[in-house]
């Protein structure tokens, strides 16, 4: 049984904490900006070349910033051993998982929405027509990243070298998300007909469903000895 009450309170807590400290989102945004800057130094691009690589750069930046946010999601629970209190919640832990996924998704999505105009301006993109499809891609890929990322954030937070282990464990597992997101984004940015990249959206949707379910189930074992 999932308690919606617990989900709501976890989301509330994460939002209030974030609103007051502004740690997660601000560090994600600035990190992403730096990544974008470094990329634009490393590739000197005309508009044609930019079209080819921009989707890749975008998702590399999003994935890395996402990992920063995900890492913070549970490492903040370490202060005053709050994680112990979460483990002792007398409910199924899936509720905590869903709350955390919702909060992480929201943070990552907000950062992506904030950064996207930056890409548009810095790399001279034209995106007026396909904006809704692009948002759908962002949505699906971010759900996938946060679904599996939240599980691994909770898993790595209690081990040594957690800052390194989170990306090491997470990145190979999100290969499908990255491929699908990059291909779909590329399609949308090029203004291709949606039929050409539909399969990637389907793949993302399947990934989201599968890993929300699997992670939801596995989270029980992460939290409960």
């Amino acid at each position: 049984m999932i308690s919606f009450n617990v989900i709501r309170w976890i989301v509330w807590k994460d939002f209030v904490t974030e609103l007051r400290s502004r740690e997660t989102i601000s560090s994600m945004v600035f990190f992403a900006l730096i990544v974008i800057l470094i990329f634009s130094f490393s590739f000197s691009m005309d508009q044609q070349a930019a079209r080819e690589v921009i989707a890749g750069i975008m998702w590399v930046a999003f994935a890395f910033t996402g990992i920063i946010g995900l890492g913070k999601s549970f490492s903040t629970e370490l202060q005053n051993d709050c994680l112990e209190a979460l483990q002792m919640v007398p409910e199924a832990k899936g509720a905590i998982y869903l709350g955390k996924v919702a909060a992480n998704f929201a943070f990552m999505f907000v950062v992506e929405i904030l950064l996207f105009p930056m890409f548009v301006i810095l790399f001279n993109l034209e995106v007026v027509e396909e904006i809704s499809l692009l948002l759908l891609v962002f949505f699906l890929a971010t759900v996938g990243l946060s679904a599996i990322g939240t599980l691994f954030s909770a898993l790595t937070v209690q081990i040594r070298a957690r800052e390194v282990m989170l990306p090491i464990l997470l990145l190979p597992l999100v290969v499908p998300v990255m491929i699908a997101a990059v291909e779909a984004t590329k399609g949308a940015l090029n203004g291709d007909p949606p039929a050409l990249y539909e399969q990637w959206l389907e793949l993302l949707a399947i990934y989201d469903v599968v890993f929300t379910v699997v992670s939801f189930w596995m989270f029980e074992f992460v939290m409960d000895s």
Partner: peptide
């Protein structure tokens, strides 16, 4: 936990890479 999640992921990774 990691092994199980990875096992579920394996076919998806394979299909995505093949496409």
């Amino acid at each position: 936990i990691l092994a199980i999640v990875g096992f579920v992921d394996l076919p998806i990774i394979h299909f995505s890479v093949e496409w």
